[in-house]
């Protein structure tokens, strides 16, 4: 009896911080946001519950277009991050010696020691009209005048890939790490070419890592604010900017909350479609057996 009570106490003590964290910092604020988004202003300081904010959102093409644009760009960033991260992760997990593995992974972490903001300004220093790249191009005679490399979609995509690629590398390394080398050798031994082994053995094996990395990267990208604003400027048209606008500039919290909920629902939908298309389940990718 005594030990069962002790077990229960231990369980409660262990669970409390987690439950509080989920409850106070995630469930409660989101419930608040959802409630807020359902309030319609009918007169000064007079509110009614209804779907008016959502209807207004759906009726205005610019909002919907921005959301679509954000989703497409985020998918592009996710795909590029996967392309960049896969060889890196494969090298770290399978080619590098055990001793250098930790060091290489740490090297990937180094950019995270600097704040998002500073890293974005780093890009600006490089890419602005009077920046390093522009000056170098002029010095080499490859450009006649100053080149503005900021404030276009390509720069935003590159900046975002740079910011999120680590979150793709880590899950990939951990799944590839669990892969027995003899699977790859068996793939060659049975007559497979490099491409066959990659396509039929390595990639399918890494699928849970690919999917979980892609979910993290897609969510981070779609919800990012700093990088699109700083590198894309006013033209970046990122959906988070619309949310910021509603909350801060227009002081229309109800509408901003509706935008926020819409973003959450929409990105979740994209993730769900992605899971269905790859035949993976959230439980088997994020929490692997």
């Amino acid at each position: 009896m005594k030990t069962r009570d002790a077990d229960r106490l231990a369980l409660i003590l262990l669970l409390t911080p987690f439950v509080m964290w989920i409850g106070l910092l995630i469930v409660l604020p989101h419930a608040g946001v959802v409630l807020l988004s359902l309030r319609e202003k009918v007169a000064p300081r007079m509110f009614e519950y209804g779907l008016g904010n959502y209807i207004a959102f759906l009726k205005e093409p610019i909002y919907l277009n921005t959301l679509m644009r954000t989703a497409v760009m985020s998918l592009l960033v996710t795909a590029l991050a996967l392309l960049v991260a896969f060889p890196v992760a494969f090298y770290i997990a399978k080619v590098a010696r055990a001793r250098s593995r930790a060091a290489l992974l740490l090297l990937c972490l180094v950019p995270l020691w600097v704040s998002d903001l500073v890293r974005a300004f780093g890009w600006i220093v490089l890419l602005r009209e009077t920046g390093i790249v522009s000056s170098a191009l002029q010095a080499l005679g490859l450009a006649a005048g100053p080149v503005e490399l900021l404030y276009n979609d390509a720069t935003v995509v590159v900046g975002l890939v740079y910011t999120v690629v680590l979150f793709m590398i880590v899950p990939l390394v951990s799944t590839l790490d669990g892969m027995d080398d003899s699977l790859i050798e068996a793939g060659f031994n049975l007559g497979g070419s490099r491409l066959t082994v990659l396509r039929r053995i390595v990639v399918p094996y890494a699928m849970p890592g690919i999917v979980s990395g892609s979910i993290i990267v897609f969510m981070l990208t779609a919800g990012s604010y700093l990088t699109p604003v700083l590198l894309g400027g006013k033209t970046s048209m990122w959906f988070t900017e619309q949310i910021y606008d509603q909350f801060i500039t227009r002081f229309n919290w109800e509408s901003g909350a509706a935008f926020g909920v819409s973003l959450l629902v929409f990105t979740s939908l994209v993730v769900w479609i992605g899971l269905r298309l790859t035949g993976q389940q959230l439980a088997t990718t994020v929490a692997r057996r």
Partner: peptide, 15 residues
């Protein structure tokens, strides 16, 4: 992958 020797691995390495 061009040798006509096939191998049964220690832990079998079934995919």
């Amino acid at each position: 992958n061009r040798r006509n020797v096939k191998m049964v691995f220690q832990h079998l390495a079934l995919f």
